[in-house]
Write a protein that binds this DNA or RNA. Structure first.
Length: 663
DNA sequence: ATTTCCTATCTTTTT
DNA sequence: GATAGGAAAT
């Protein structure tokens, strides 16, 4: 076998997984047990055994892990064959399926994906229109109800809360009117088109004869149904996951999918990977002792291959300021001992906790990279630019058009856009059609008419030059200049830092547009990708420094030295999980956090923490009592500072000594 | 129509 | 302590 990997380098269980190519396979892979390695070797083995790369599909959960897996397989089987494989997320898979056949479901072929801020904005508007303001209804709540209903394949009108149901129905009508879909629709419609149209199903089943699903514990019931449609007999499906790392229950993930895999695909080969190559015994003992407290899991234990190791440290802090300062001082110290900044990661439960840490790192001039904070494509200026691109591509889309209509200000204010909106509703046409509608223009003031016509002819002019074959990146850049977009943007910024960030956001967006066009993608392709991508991958990978990351985003990653901060009741476990009775998931979250560490693990908790500008008292997390004390070393703030003080005294002593000796 | 100032709310986690 | 949306002033 001329495989790009050596079978000898795998352990027995891994080997078994790599060789089980046909039929359903369930790989239970604990943290750090060489899961990715095994999966990529297995895919490589498929190709070695004569399976065509075009017939192989790997589904992952994030774009990032898709990219990573694709890269690793390519490294094994060569670029040419690697490129023919399909490695993508559930959502982008459905996007592909729908691009081919969405017309069967009554949508027009060119549909848009609505996500992030646009979606929130739309819901917010509807809340106001339907009078949900008074009862303080939050967009997030409405969205999660809609999502729940869609994932359960229940009608939106059946949502228990009448007002939410009404808003949900209006939301869906609005999407439908705009020929747009949201994230859940992608899955919902993807599954539906496969189920209802045998020829579509056969096409995709025939294309993807070998399917692999990574992070299977995170799939929800809809994704499971999709898989059932996608994978036909003889069920060449391999799923990989770890029920102990299921941390997306709030998004509808069903641990049952992994616990009862055999219910969906008969007689699977079940393979357990339990030998951990990532962490020291100390780290694993603590992780195991914690996760043991969860009920209803597939019993398993991570077996260490690296005996001993430093004890896991548990440090109490007076406040979050001290917590941040102490961790940074530790990093500085260890860097002086030869550690590189990329070895360190600081893990958080919520994004809000990151701020303090950032502040201190900046003071100390230590570079850092953040993962899982605000999504690049959700930044204001980026969404503005993207809205412009959307309007260029398809002016009939109301949401992006409304967004840019008066930013920068061009004399088409709120009154006018509301009038246009009403008119478009009445005539059952898009707002763009209304703006070029003579009847509509006739009934507005001359001044407003002028402003509108200036704008619409601008759009038409720019669109024409696009059709003439001008480069979209250049056209967009020129147009932004023409309307003094930058100047307007800069005027809104208070600090220089903000200015830089905004400028960078705009130029990065234009740059990635330019790049996409260069690669031969259409504007629609570019916009779809922007909607599905949470992050701009390349920046994150390239940036160096200490990693700041949420526990959720950290899954699948590893770092030599890990600090896990804010181990406090109300944060981890999160207050809301206590209300919702999902404490087990919080425990898994902590488990994921601990198992990220290769060599050194430090956890901290504070007595007080500044929340919303106010100091609040905190209590140590109840999870702390569940950790095996044999492998934990507890320290107080006084101990650490005491040690440091005596070190200083010592230094003072030495300098005094040398002064004497110099004499 | 646009800017500016005030206030209520926010903090789980993400495709 | 930020930020978005609303009211008030220009």
């Amino acid at each position: 076998m001329s495989a790009g990997f050596s079978i000898e380098s795998l352990n027995k269980a891994q080997r078994k997984a790599v060789l089980a190519l046909k039929g359903p396979v369930l790989i239970l892979a604990g943290a750090g047990t060489g899961k990715t390695r095994t999966v990529t070797c297995r895919m490589s083995a498929l190709l070695e055994n004569g399976v065509k790369a075009e017939n192989v599909l790997a589904v992952t959960f994030t774009n990032k892990s898709a990219a990573e897996m694709a890269e690793r397989v390519m490294g094994m089987v060569g670029k040419k064959r690697g490129k023919a494989l399909t490695v993508c997320t559930f959502h982008s898979l459905c996007l592909r399926i729908l691009k081919r056949d969405i017309e069967s479901l009554g949508y027009k072929k060119k549909f848009a994906v609505m996500a992030g801020g646009d979606q929130t904005g739309m819901i917010r508007q509807l809340i106001v229109r339907k009078g949900g303001r008074q009862i303080n209804l939050k967009p997030g709540e409405v969205m999660s109800e809609i999502s729940k209903a869609k994932n359960a394949e229940l009608p939106l009108s059946g949502i228990e809360d009448e007002l939410i149901a009404e808003i949900a129905v209006a939301y869906q009508n609005e999407l439908r009117a705009q020929n747009a879909v949201d994230f859940d629709d992608l899955l919902l419609l993807g599954e539906r088109v496969l189920r209802e149209y045998p020829e579509v199903r056969v096409y995709w089943q025939d294309k993807f004869r070998y399917v692999t699903v990574d992070e299977f514990q995170d799939t929800n019931s809809l994704q499971m149904k999709l898989l059932q449609q996608l994978v036909g007999e003889p069920y060449n499906i391999c799923v990989v996951g770890d029920d102990d790392q299921s941390i997306y229950g709030w998004r509808g993930a069903q641990v049952a999918n992994i616990l009862q895999f055999e219910r969906f695909f008969p007689n699977p080969k079940i393979i357990r990977l339990e030998e951990n190559y990532r962490s020291t015994q100390a780290v694993l003992e603590v992780a195991n002792s914690l996760i043991r407290h969860n009920l209803g899991r597939r019993e398993k234990k991570l077996k260490p291959t690296i005996p001993g190791g430093d004890l896991v440290r548990l440090v109490s802090m007076p406040g979050d300021q001290e917590e941040a300062e102490w961790i940074v001082s530790e990093i500085v110290m260890q860097r002086e001992e030869g550690r590189v900044l990329e070895d360190f990661a600081i893990l958080f439960r919520t994004n809000g906790q990151i701020r303090k840490m950032e502040e201190v790192l900046r003071e100390e001039k230590i570079p850092y990279r953040m993962v899982g904070a605000q999504s690049f494509y959700d930044r204001k200026e980026v969404r503005d630019v993207l809205s412009y691109v959307q309007v260029l591509n398809q002016p009939e889309l109301d949401i992006p058009l409304l967004r840019i209509l008066n930013s920068p200000p061009r004399g088409i204010g709120n009154t006018t856009s509301m009038a246009a909106l009403d008119w478009s509703r009445e005539k059952d046409q898009s707002i763009w059609e209304t703006l070029i509608d003579g009847d509509f223009l006739f009934q507005v003031s001359k001044k407003v008419r002028n402003s509108i016509q200036t704008f619409t002819s601008q759009v038409e002019g720019v669109r024409r030059s696009l059709i003439d074959g001008m480069h979209a990146g250049i056209v967009m850049d020129q147009w932004l200049r023409e309307m003094d977009f930058h100047e307007w943007l800069m005027r809104q910024c208070k600090t220089d830092k903000e200015k830089d960030a905004r400028r960078e956001g705009v130029s990065t967006t234009i740059a990635s547009l330019t790049e996409a066009i260069k690669k031969g993608k259409s504007l629609s392709d570019f916009l779809d990708q922007a909607a599905l991508d949470a992050e701009k991958e390349d920046d994150l990978e390239k940036k160096s420094g200490v990693t700041l990351i949420t526990l959720h985003a950290a899954k699948g990653l590893e770092y030599p030295i890990v600090y896990l901060v804010g181990l406090e009741e109300g944060i981890l476990p999160h207050k809301r999980s206590l209300e919702e009775g999902t404490r087990d998931e919080e425990r898994r979250l902590l488990y994921v956090g601990i198992t990220r560490a290769q060599e050194k693990m430090t956890m901290t908790y504070c007595a007080t923490r500044v929340k919303w500008g106010k100091e609040e008292a905190c209590e140590a997390s109840s999870f702390i009592g569940e950790l095996n004390p044999d492998w934990v070393h507890e320290e107080g703030y006084e101990d650490i500072m005491g040690a440091e003080a005596s070190e200083e005294e010592l230094r003072g002593f030495f300098s005094a000594m040398s002064a004497i000796l110099d004499d």
